[in-house]
Every structure is written in structure tokens, then in C-alpha cells.
Design a protein around this nucleic acid. Structure first.
Length: 231
DNA sequence: GCGACAG
DNA sequence: ATCTTGTCGC
């Protein structure tokens, strides 16, 4: 699977901000979905002693949640971690990993925010837009916004608000467990996104997609501790 | 100026 | 993100 949209890579923070403001206008916040048969999960791991990043893309059967394909990529960080500019750090290796998939997923779940972002352009929006695939942001913590306490049952949620805007949901994916932050990435409405995340969190707090991707990047990081700088 | 701040 | 396995508690 290759990107369908290309844009110049920003050289500095100011260019990255300008690019986000421009691309944010192209994000689609409503459902424009095909039958969802394949769901991909993405994750990135960091090596604290070098500047290496390992990215993974794992494709699951959307019905059985069985892994059907996976790919990894190693890269060197080209952008520092700056809250709000997260995608410019993680996107390069993620694009490589996604490019190594033979299957084209019908939905992508990202570890981070979608439009629950200062400029409404989190990592999930960026990935979804580049590949023109419906995408969801599912973060473990909040970047922006306020919310009430979500109900205690699996599937309960409460709106995440930034002023008058509803930018996402705090979603309880297991009974009595701390909620996750769900937001539209691209081509999927918030309620639909919450349904899918709930479905993907079949046994744990986090979606199986991100869990599988997380396990893969960790294995890969451990396996490549003394070698490859990138690939 | 102070606090917040995805991974 | 990362340091980190078993262990205390409901």
C-alpha cells in the first residue's frame, strides 16, 4: 500500500504548523466507509540510546481479530517530540511500514489523537489523509479538551470538548477501567469510531490492533539492539 | 509568568 | 516513549 497524497516535508516547526493548518481542511469527519474487513494497527517504539525508531503496521481480520499480515520499518528520528507536532516524528517510519503491506486495510487505528488536536490534525488525520483510508485516533491520554466522567460500563463514553467543539470521546473500553481518548482521524464519524474501538477492545483496555503493533515493535527493537541503524 | 503538554 | 517482575490487593 502506497500513499495517495504527497506533500513537501517541513524543515522546521513553523513549516510544520503551516502544513497542518492547510491539510486540516481536507479531513473528512463523516463516514465514508467500505465494508470493513481488514483493520490495521500502528505503533512506534524508541531507542533511548540512539535516535532510532521502529514502526509497525499490523493487519487484523476485522471479524475474528486474527493477525493476517504485519510489517516493520526502522528509521532515524528527524523531528523532535513536540506536543501537537507528533506526526512529523512518527510518520516517516509508519509510512515505510504501511508501504510494505500487500493488503490495503479498510480502517487504520492510530496510537494517538485524530482531530482532538489544537489544529484538528493529529497523527490519525495525517495517516488517513495520506493513504486515503478511514482512520481513528485512539490515545491512552489526552492532549487537549475537557470531559466529564464516563459511565462505568464497557462502551460508555462522554464527549471530549474544546470550548464549543466536540473533538472526541473519552471511551470506557472495559468495565471500571480508565477510558481511552477516541477521535475521528479521517472518513469516519465519532460514534462509528467509538463502536469500532469498543469492538477492537475485546479483552483489554487498548484495541487489539495497537496491542499487536506494540508487541511487534518491542520484539523488533529487542532483536535489533546491536545492529541496523535503519533499513 | 505559570501550567499543560498524544508518544 | 523509557526505566521494569513479581507482587499486593480487590
Amino acid at each position: 500500500m502506497q500513499p495517495r497524497l504527497h506533500h513537501p516535508w517541513p524543515e522546521d516547526e513553523a513549516a510544520a504548523l503551516a502544513l497542518q493548518r492547510q491539510l486540516a481542511g481536507q479531513v473528512e469527519r463523516h463516514d465514508r466507509l467500505d465494508d470493513i474487513r481488514l483493520v490495521a494497527g500502528l505503533d512506534v517504539a524508541y531507542d533511548e540510546h540512539s535516535d532510532r525508531l521502529v514502526a509497525a503496521a499490523v493487519v487484523l481480520d476485522a471479524h475474528t481479530l486474527v493477525v493476517v499480515e504485519q510489517a516493520v520499518a526502522v528509521d532515524v528520528a528527524r523531528f523532535p517530540y513536540i506536543p501537537g507536532l507528533f506526526s512529523f516524528r512518527e510518520l516517516p517510519p509508519l509510512v515505510q511500514a504501511l508501504g510494505r503491506l500487500s493488503l490495503r486495510p479498510d480502517l487504520i487505528v492510530c496510537d494517538g489523537q485524530g482531530i482532538a488536536h489544537p489544529r484538528r490534525f493529529g497523527l490519525a488525520c495525517h495517516v488517513g489523509l495520506l493513504f486515503d483510508v478511514p482512520s481513528i485516533g485512539c490515545g491512552k491520554t489526552r492532549l487537549l479538551g475537557q470531559h466529564d466522567q464516563a459511565g462505568p460500563e464497557r462502551g460508555d463514553s462522554t464527549p471530549l470538548r474544546d470550548g464549543d467543539d466536540i473533538i472526541g470521546s473519552a471511551l470506557r473500553t472495559q468495565r471500571g477501567i480508565k477510558p481511552v481518548y477516541v477521535s475521528t482521524g479521517h472518513r469516519i464519524a465519532l460514534p462509528t469510531a467509538c463502536h469500532w474501538i469498543t469492538r477492537l477492545c475485546s479483552k483489554y483496555r487498548l484495541p487489539e490492533t495497537t496491542r499487536m503493533a506494540d508487541q511487534l515493535v518491542r520484539r523488533e527493537m529487542a532483536a535489533g539492539l546491536g545492529g541496523r541503524k535503519e533499513d
